[in-house]
Design a binder for these strands. Structure first.
Lengths: 333, 333
DNA sequence: TTGAAAGCGCTAACAA
DNA sequence: TTGTTAGCGCTTTCAA
């Protein structure tokens, strides 16, 4: 049982009205320095803590943000969640984390605002959201990590196409000529796949190479098992690739395991590049070359944009906020 | 702006009093089947959603639980959080996730109940909590994953000592004679280290071997880098080990990387066993033999015990709840 | 610069 | 079985 010290008790102790205590505590309105000190002392002595439920009931604000990611057990999202957590705390907000499983329906529900009524705003990391949500976004919303074209809300992302182009170009620059890609998806609205694939093709084209679909096996998801399966398929090819660019480190890990298992050298026989720069990628065999999105910036931009949105900012601000990225070259490619 | 449909609107529409609506919605009190249907229809048509702030203000319950883990970027905790998330949702609770950084002070704050005033109860995964908190636990609290002796609250854990004994015995049974251990900690109150080390020593003893501190290098934390550093030290020894038992899969990954880098065979020259059965461990080179705690059971027990605690259950129930574990034998040992 | 008082939407004690 | 009503603790208009 939390001590039942309320505004009233503090007010009595400090010899002022509740209103003044409220003002001092939230640092709003006017009051003299002397009053302020007296109130703060009373707060301290009594161990007063504002009742958030009452505050919310009154103001309609809870200070709670929701972060919805596909799966917390995916290291990239876990790391991202960690950053968002820190950033939300820095902004004085509480963060709720939810897993959508990457299901379009679950993502839609969240975009529509059918979340815990507690939340003031939502940061959604969609995997397969379509634009049915466009017409009726129900909460202050920010999309993190993927562009869903029609949604009227800020999108926080990195230059996926540019990053994919750089990663592919890197492989090409090292003399690879059959560069495969793991991460193409055939489901509709798979924006990550689409933007990165575009970058890959641009790099190929710039090098005078032509895109072969055989070198871009489709995957169902972005897990290790998907990467492993795709790599196996690639190695069955009459002309197997001499390099593979994976759209996620997790898939790269799976791919690495398959290549090793075949007794092939990395990067000797097959170079491998990933995407995400998850912590584990420093410890794979061999350490993974990968695209590192600036996760801290991503989190900062997302929380910032959301807080502004909640504060009533209209869609005035640019609808796409870009965080940086860089290619971290390690030993796998 | 959430639609401002309240109990009142629903009551009017259904032609009953607010009280009845409230009862129907929460399924408490008495009402006829006909009333019930009428009310539910009105709720549906109006899209009524209860205001949780008002409810909480009135009842003092928010239905929000807090899970505090050291770091979300540690895969074991990320996976565990995923399970707890699901379990909390199944119980109709909202889950807040927080990272303590494993700092004793941060953990103490949480155990003392100095959390977001919103939360009804806390599941804490402590790394270094001491028993200063004993006297004054301030919220319904459940400890997950580690026993902190004096705290008057349920402890959810696995048989760490037994598990460590089994893992070590497994290595011994395969003919290893110099079995090292990575994970010994010298900071006070490192319960995980202490219980697992005890199991390791028991197995050694049962095999007629004696404990050598040189084979148990101290680590500062349980990350990959710590495992790598410890493994390096071990390989410098005049008589290096022929097997290593790591208290966390993350450390095992670091250790594997070092062993490979030295050109030694796994498990040929050095067998490696981990602890946690994190998903990544199926994809290490070679796949990691590891102790798998039943994370689902851990989550279920923790949420269950906490909900009962919040509901007013006294410390009547057993103070230690054990989840199962098993040794998953893969190729590394 | 401060005080008094009216609710925010809901639950539960009291009535009918 | 259902209706009425008094607050929960806070913010904020209206007065002083």
């Amino acid at each position: 049982m939390r001590a039942d010290i309320g505004l009233k008790e503090v007010a009595e102790r400090a010899g002022v009205s509740m209103r003044t205590v409220s003002n001092v505590v939230r640092d709003t309105g006017r009051f003299s320095e002397a009053t302020r000190e007296r109130v703060l002392r009373a707060v301290e002595e009594l161990g007063y803590r504002p009742n958030t439920a009452a505050r919310r009931l009154r103001t309609g604000r809870s200070g709670v943000l929701l972060l919805a990611v596909p799966e917390l057990s995916m290291p990239y999202f876990a790391e991202l969640a960690g950053h968002v957590l820190r950033e939300a705390a820095a902004q004085g907000c509480t963060l709720l984390v939810e897993a959508t499983g990457g299901h379009p329906e679950a993502e839609l529900e969240i975009a529509l605002g059918r979340t815990d009524p507690l939340v003031d705003g939502v940061i959604l990391s969609p995997l397969a959201l379509d634009d049915r949500a466009a017409a009726q976004v129900g909460v202050p919303l920010v999309l993190l990590g993927e562009r869903v074209h029609e949604l009227p809300c800020p999108h926080i992302t990195i230059d996926n196409t540019g990053a994919a182009r750089e990663a592919t170009a890197h492989l090409l620059a090292r003399g690879r000529r059959r560069v495969a890609v793991i991460g193409r998806q055939t489901v509709p609205h798979a924006a990550t796949s689409a933007t990165r694939l575009a970058g890959y093709r641009q790099a190929l084209e710039a090098a005078g190479l032509r895109y072969e679909e055989a070198l871009a096996p489709a995957v169902a998801a972005y897990g290790r098992a998907d990467g492993a399966a795709a790599m196996r398929a690639l190695l069955e090819l009459a002309e197997p690739p001499d390099a593979v660019f994976c759209f996620a480190d997790a898939m790269a890990e799976g791919a690495l395991a398959v290549v090793r298992e075949r007794g092939l050298g990395i990067p000797g026989d097959v170079a491998v590049v990933g995407f995400d720069d998850v912590e584990a990628s420093r410890y794979t065999a061999p350490p993974l070359t990968t695209v590192a999105p600036d996760k801290g910036a991503l989190a900062r931009l997302a929380v910032g944009a959301l807080v502004r949105r909640i504060g009533g900012a209209e869609a005035k601000e640019p609808s796409v906020l870009l965080a940086g990225h860089r290619l971290v070259v390690r030993e796998s490619g």
